[in-house]
Design a protein around this nucleic acid. Structure first.
Lengths: 339, 339
DNA sequence: CTGGATTCTGCACACGTGCCCACATAATGT
DNA sequence: ACATTATGTGGGCACGTGTGCAGAATCCAG
């Protein structure tokens, strides 16, 4: 039990295997070990093989903290998620995490829904982050400038942040709902309603305008509208009221969750969807495809958006001082059974 | 443009503000700055205030990489998620992330569903992780031993990993489905079916046994069973077949998603739930509460489980050599409209 | 054998911090 | 007045790595 380790430290807490230990065991210098783990480095092939074998056996990997300290690049990326409970955000983050992993960038998740989110950001800035990715939600202006001051590149998606040094990836929301509205107009619908999300979210406002503009060109107007919070439960509650008070034949919703809530409400009220009422969502989450919903909706392309975020990240790392960009993504209509 | 920074380095890439820079600006020693950011440290109060002000103005925070390198504790926690698309796992991770953030532990997410997950784990081990948390899914045995070799404490939840140095938090699955089955028996149901998940997941097997044991005590047997993959789509497909081929009056499902699929199937087949058929899920995800499902289910307590994971983490960090523990969580029946 | 070219390797520095230690100053006790 | 204690401060080491540099080793042609 009291047998000492190779080194004479008290070693109350077991430390990591170090490059020096591997070097000693393999009978080479520490530099050689370091080179064995550096892709383009100059090292005799046979020696490299020996070192790799010994290292694997001892359970050695270069310490990423030390490496990051050396070259100022941590490979850590903070991901600030507005609302992790939201289905779309959750699908988005899932895709994002997968692609970051594949790139050997490590996503640190921060729950923006939490009260202490600001504090969390402040704390996580202690790491020299490669970037901070914002997914939806709203981050206080002050925090954005604070991050810029720390020199952390920011990439926002789902909400445009107008600030020098912040790159954006965003969906052409108005185009999306415009497409949907046009389909309904072509079908002969005339009595339109809009079921929005929280007004502080620009996406809901943009989507609303998309409907209004297209209606306007056709000489039509919104007959009724109401504001929810992007969730199924609230969507249902709001829609029950909206549909009872107004005789609508078309309802465009700010997102799929709201639309699914509205669909439930319509059925509870005895309305036949799509005969009596056309119903359209936004996002095209997996649930929209379920046979019991079969929701007509606007696809908000996750893979495209994530790819653009990754591309922006790589460009930004290659050229830290570059002009900030805003990439727009084109949504498209997905016809299913509710329109 | 060619104006040099305070220091005479070429500074092609802008570096972080350092403690030395703050010390120079505030007219104190670097040690003083360090102390200003160390909670219990000895420093004149007025001096501390000055330093804090200057530091905030310059955008200084201690570099967590350097600090971690120094004391061998990175405050990073890898979270390996079996399937981020699963609703329950996503709710679980959301809760876990929130509580880790509150503790100033930073969760690095790894998507276990991805092909390259093994490689990702190998790479992320370069960071001296405080711990590795496994949520569901299945991690290859070899990787587990590899992590242990690296001295990274592991906490598994949703699936018990029998290995020295791995702590576990797990639900008493059999008890849960047993409770549900008993309720149905008391209601007079006799013709039971079980809709399971992938058999490689121990949770599904345990839940199945829970039903069988209770049926056995009542002199009953499973009439039919089928195996899905925990998703709504597959649940529906399997249930369509199962319900068409057997005249059941009770169907216990391995999880809520399967149950919701089965509910859809039952309705498509014209069955009245709960009159003709009692249907019970497992997990109690948010969706189970939606009025259009109103699913009777077994609550698989997320908050309790996450709290236990956090507690285990803290105990493990306080005493790295401690015996590994297995904490069992008690699920409970949630009566709603489908039984 | 010798000089030069080529291939390989070890030394030592820097990255930014926390903390121990020695020391300086102020406060207190005899 | 001096000894002793409390309080505050700066110097410097260690954490583990990547890499420039100079020098060692090897090889080849003359």
């Amino acid at each position: 039990m009291s047998v000492a380790q190779d080194h004479d430290k008290p070693a109350d807490r077991r430390r990591r295997v170090t490059a020096q230990a591997v070097a000693d065991a393999a009978g080479v210098s520490r530099s050689a070990v370091s080179r064995a783990f550096t892709p383009g480095a100059y090292l005799d092939e046979s020696k490299r093989r020996i070192i790799e074998k010994v290292a694997h056996h001892m359970g050695y990997q270069p310490n990423a903290l030390a490496a990051g300290l050396k070259d100022g690049r941590s490979h850590l990326v903070a991901v600030f998620v507005g609302n992790m409970r939201s289905t779309y955000d959750s699908e988005f983050v899932s895709a994002l995490v997968g692609k970051l992993n594949a790139l050997n960038k490590w996503p640190i998740l921060i729950d923006g829904g939490d009260q202490r989110a600001e504090d969390a950001i402040e704390q996580v800035l202690r790491y020299p982050l490669d970037a901070l990715i914002l997914r939806g939600g709203s981050m206080p202006r002050a925090l954005v400038t604070r991050c810029t001051k720390f020199g952390v590149p920011m990439i926002s998606t789902g909400r445009i942040v107008q600030s020098p040094g912040v790159d954006n990836v965003c969906c052409r929301n108005a185009d999306g709902t415009g497409l949907a509205a046009q389909v309904l107009i072509d079908k002969g619908r005339t009595r339109f309603g809009y079921l929005g999300g929280a007004p502080s979210f620009s996406s809901s406002a943009e989507r609303r305008l998309g409907v209004i503009d297209v209606l306007d060109k056709a000489g039509l107007k919104l007959i009724a509208e109401a504001t929810g919070d992007f969730t199924v439960e609230t969507g249902r509650k709001i829609a029950l009221k909206l549909l009872a008070e107004h005789k609508l034949d078309a309802l465009v919703c700010a997102n799929d969750a709201s639309a699914i809530g509205a669909l439930t409400a319509a059925r509870e009220l005895g309305l036949d969807v799509p005969c009596d009422l056309s119903l359209i969502g936004f996002d095209d989450i997996e649930m929209a495809r379920w046979p019991n919903f079969d929701l007509s909706t606007v696809n908000n392309p996750i893979d495209d958006a994530v790819d653009q975020v990754i591309a922006l990240l790589e460009r930004r790392l290659a050229e830290p001082g570059k002009q900030s960009e805003t990439i727009m993504i084109d949504p498209f209509f997905v016809p299913r059974g509710t329109h």
